[in-house]
Design a protein around this nucleic acid. Sequence first.
DNA 1: ATATTTTAAGATAAAAGAGTCTCAATAATC
DNA 2: GATTATTGAGACTCTTTTATCTTAAAATAT
Lengths: 153, 153
Amino acid sequence: MLLSKSCVYGLRAALYLANQEKGKFIPIRQMSDKLEISFHFLTKILQQLTAEGILESFKGPNGGVRLVRNGSEVPLMDVVVAIDGSKLLTECALGLPGCGVKAPCPIHDKWAETRDSIREMLEQSTLTELVNKSRKENLRLTSEDGFDILFND
Amino acid sequence: MLLSKSCVYGLRAALYLANQEKGKFIPIRQMSDKLEISFHFLTKILQQLTAEGILESFKGPNGGVRLVRNGSEVPLMDVVVAIDGSKLLTECALGLPGCGVKAPCPIHDKWAETRDSIREMLEQSTLTELVNKSRKENLRLTSEDGFDILFND
DNA sequence: ATATTTTAAGATAAAAGAGTCTCAATAATC
DNA sequence: GATTATTGAGACTCTTTTATCTTAAAATAT
């Protein structure tokens, strides 16, 4: 798999947050319910995002987490790197050691191109961009609910 | 990671075999020694490739495994699919359910492009092509030895 | 036939990823 | 202050991947 499950959950949660009123703290429980992700597991993942400075949290009643920056300034890449690290964008596809510009593996050049297009995709897509698109086309973040239903009370 | 470790080992072994005299059975022990992969683990992986019809094996003295087809007719894709399956080329990058042409996820289109370029790379590169390139440029299949040293006795 | 060399198959172990549970810390409300 | 709602942190479990070990089966050579 390209991205770990933790990473995918983190991205879905980040998209959820980007669709919320700016500055408002959203309880993790609400997100885990809506997104159908285990509460404790999601908590751990979001703790990573908080530690990495992508989210900030607030304890107690009316607490929760929120994006530090505006969603339009958060490329998917930031979330991916915070959770999965950057090996996806640095490692040799064939796992051949010593692969690089100096001593490329047989598919180094081709893979470098592919890797760049992954990088581009993750760097150019922001949370807000995807949220807008999702709203417009009623895309899903879960198996059941359309995007609009997801944000009803 | 894009490819599992098993898959990478399988690819390295397939490249090793593609550099051998055509039709000759190569003992797995020899490959595991040269490629610095655990013998039993490599055996299991090659069993999969045998089961998938990419390799054929022969027991007993002078036995081993060999490529069924000529290396020039074996794209990397065959090895990858035999070991890792095809989810890499079919699954949604964001893990969003219901993602497809009918109900695409926000990055479906961009990801589809990237995925196609991965597919292209794996389909167009054959074992022989990579072996030739490796021979010419003395590329590595292990952390230590150059390609030519690897095949000395 | 017997011993030897090899792959096949299955049991087991270790490590990593995914997921759960419990309790502590913090902040608001009553 | 007590209660409640929330995140934080750590231990724990389950599953998958990775790796090892043992025994069986097949083929060869003696």
